[in-house]
């Protein structure tokens, strides 16, 4: 009786959790650009996650994307305060602010805090979460039926004239099959 009860408890517990034991939580980060952008020459950066070993090793095993953040260093080269904006798009040929800010062409995913004129702003991993404005747009580039891990990042300012240097990395927290 005791043996049967012990075995029954073990089997029941195993049945309750079986199927989800071979999963884990990982993080990956990749560059989101490193350059100078101004309204006369907008900086673009082509992301290819297929060059990221963490992504390549896990892209077919991703169960969910749990959180996204951006770590960045932004240096404003003009006297006017600005907010840096990052757009992503499948289209790598956008050239003007009007084309980039058109929702049919690109999606705004990140808006920085105010970067003071002639100043620098460092955005930490912890702060970056709060400045992601469209997490789903980034997720759609990573997983899903049409996701191929390749897209273009455009960096512009929210002022008529902008000139800033930025360096950014995207941090993605994932649940994957092991």
């Amino acid at each position: 009786m005791r043996t049967i009860t012990c075995i029954s408890l073990v089997v029941l517990l195993a049945a309750c959790v079986g199927g989800c034991l071979t999963t884990g939580q990982i993080k990956l980060h990749d560059s989101f650009g490193d350059g100078v952008t101004h309204n006369g020459d907008i900086y673009t950066y082509h992301v290819d996650l297929n060059t990221n070993s963490d992504y390549v090793d896990n892209k077919d095993k991703i169960l969910s994307i749990d959180a996204i953040s951006i770590v960045a260093v932004i240096k404003n080269n003009l006297q006017t305060d600005l907010q840096a904006e990052i757009y992503i798009s499948e289209n790598k040929e956008l050239e003007t602010v009007e084309e980039i800010t058109d929702p049919k062409n690109a999606t705004l995913v990140f808006v920085s805090p105010t970067v003071p004129g002639n100043g620098q702003l460092d955005i930490s991993w912890a702060d970056g979460f709060a400045h992601i404005v469209d997490e789903q747009a980034i997720i759609d580039q990573i997983i899903g039926d049409t996701a191929d891990g390749m897209f273009t990042v455009y960096a512009i300012g929210n002022t008529t004239n902008f000139d800033f240097a930025y360096k950014a990395e995207v941090v993605v927290l994932l649940t994957v099959e092991l």
Binding site: V17, G19, C20, L21, T23, G24, Q25, L63, S64, T175, V176
Partner: peptide, 12 residues
């Protein structure tokens, strides 16, 4: 200890 999550994963 295993805590199954909504995405078919789990915290262990």
């Amino acid at each position: 200890q295993v805590a199954p999550t909504e995405n078919d994963g789990s915290l262990k």
